[in-house]
Design a protein around this nucleic acid. Sequence first.
DNA 1: AGCAATTGTTGTCGTCAACAACAATCTTTG
DNA 2: CAAAGATTGTTGTTGACGACAACAATTGCT
Lengths: 177, 177
Amino acid sequence: MRAAGEKKVTTSAGRNELPTRAPRKRAGRGAARPDDADEVGLDALVGHAGYAVRRFQIWIFQDFVRTLASVDIRPTQYSVMTVIGANPGLSQMAVAKRLGIERARLVHLLDSLEGRKLVRRIKSKTDRRSHALHLTAQGGLSLAKFKQLAAEHERHVEEKIGKGNRERLLQILAGFT
Amino acid sequence: MRAAGEKKVTTSAGRNELPTRAPRKRAGRGAARPDDADEVGLDALVGHAGYAVRRFQIWIFQDFVRTLASVDIRPTQYSVMTVIGANPGLSQMAVAKRLGIERARLVHLLDSLEGRKLVRRIKSKTDRRSHALHLTAQGGLSLAKFKQLAAEHERHVEEKIGKGNRERLLQILAGFT
DNA sequence: AGCAATTGTTGTCGTCAACAACAATCTTTG
DNA sequence: CAAAGATTGTTGTTGACGACAACAATTGCT
């Protein structure tokens, strides 16, 4: 519901400023006073995996949100629906554990999705504490659309870091999924 | 939880009924329904770079916080001090731009660091709007210690994904730093 | 001088991880 | 079987964080 920005972000959104890194001289210590951020040396920060990953994560997140803005689905919502769609009848606990999110957080997520008639909580008969999660008919249809857009987002990632690098990345991080 | 032989991704577009596992601990559920998160298929989620990166980012973040817990320094604080240490005299705007954080947010960050006598805001004489940021003597000493711990954290990353993979990762994501 | 832009600051809003506490409901065990 | 313990969904709080909006002081531009 934001969309107020209406920035000139095209749907392709790739190749904006990747190779900016001008091989300029390192910011000289002492007298030099780099005012432009482009000239600021990072020193020890480069070489930290966490920093690079954080920046990349932010970029990916924003592109995902932007690409799926028309359907108003955020990454976490998408992951929840995907898991439920692939494993109907899961309990909230199971979904939370699988996605590594707090079950407390999943409550709000599902409230929202259920309010939009995408997901249903059905009381389990075998365990009256838990809910069996299912996609609604509309939810299934919608998820198909979401997946299309998510695939488009994935193409943006390819454009940004290269197809081979993306696959390599997935391979390296396969242990965390 | 590595989900080793996980190849239950039946590419046939239809439903992929999970391979019937013998019901383990809990009383039989009647229908084949995975209760344990370990058995839950992710389907389309695997293959999404954003998901893998997010999980990895969370892991890295937590390890960083844990490794630097003794000095009570969080990733963002570390990045701010590193940049200031490498480029003394920077303005808040320059630091914020370089690290990709909001200048509004940097205010609180610096309030905290200045309160701990690690950095100083010195009024610029050339531009009385801005502050020149410097590490205090204690801040410089502390940063050296922080860097040691950060290097230890980085070793944890190596242990987790492998030395070569870590370097490849940094290489792939170099454009985002 | 006048007006737009920048800088630091304050504040709000929404997302997210991490806990804590609780009622309802299993499961275990004495 | 009944009490004790554990689990599930829920509500609430805390704190870090990104995104904005508005503002005063200051600078730059014309």
